[in-house]
């Protein structure tokens, strides 16, 4: 773990792999650090203090926190009902060197964990642990991806919380809102959450 500077209020922790990020994030979540926010990402975790935080002593505390034993999804997986009817399903299967049915099977069987969020409120980047996911992005991003689109890119799958531009491969759509301000909590897919996709007919 490397600690990089990020101004007068925050420290950026850098790791060699997403796996390490997940383990450290689980440990940070369980710790009693007094900070404003902890923001995991692909290779980093940003720890944001407030006006009273002394960054030197925070760095000292962070160095003493041991990573968790495992990536630590909490509780029973959240089940997300989906239909595999995305515009890029066949092409994505080709890119991954399998049939569309095989892609769907793997996606349903995979034990996904929300690694981090970003891009838009409630947009979770879900990492698998069983299959090797490495999906090239679309060569030219769409200007409009419909809300609820189930998509793949790189090592991740995700569901677009709302209509937006996007370069991910669309393989289907979710039948539940992943971000709903009228629900508590609004974001269904918080970091650390275990997720299973369930095919809905």
């Amino acid at each position: 773990m490397r600690i990089l500077p990020s101004g007068t209020r925050a420290l950026l922790l850098e790791f060699d792999s997403l796996e390490e990020v997940l383990r450290h994030y689980a440990a940070l979540r369980d710790s009693d650090l007094s900070v404003l926010d902890v923001v995991p990402a692909g290779r980093t975790i940003l720890v944001i203090g407030d006006r009273d935080t002394d960054l030197n002593s925070l760095a000292g505390q962070l160095r003493t926190i041991e990573p968790g034993e495992h990536r630590g999804p909490v509780g029973a997986p959240v089940e997300v009902p989906v239909r595999y009817d995305g515009a890029d399903l066949a092409e994505t299967a080709d890119l991954l060197g399998c049939s569309a049915q095989e892609l769907v099977r793997r996606h349903l069987e995979e034990q996904w964990t929300v690694a981090f969020c970003g891009f838009a409120p409630g947009f979770g980047y879900l990492a698998g642990s069983t299959f090797d996911w490495d999906t090239p992005r679309r060569e030219s991003p769409r200007t409009r991806v419909p809300a609820g689109s189930l998509a793949l890119a790189g090592e991740f799958t995700g569901v677009y919380p709302r209509e937006s531009p996007g370069g991910w491969q669309l393989i289907g759509h979710a039948l539940v809102d992943v971000f709903d301000l009228d629900r508590e909590p609004a974001a269904l897919l918080a970091p650390g959450t275990a997720v299973r996709f369930v095919e809905s007919s």
């Binding site: 902890v38 995991p40 981090f116 409630g122 974001a187």
Partner: peptide, 11 residues
Amino acid sequence: RPGQAALGIGR
């Protein structure tokens, strides 16, 4: 909205 950046929600 501090404290919600992990959910993709900016301050």
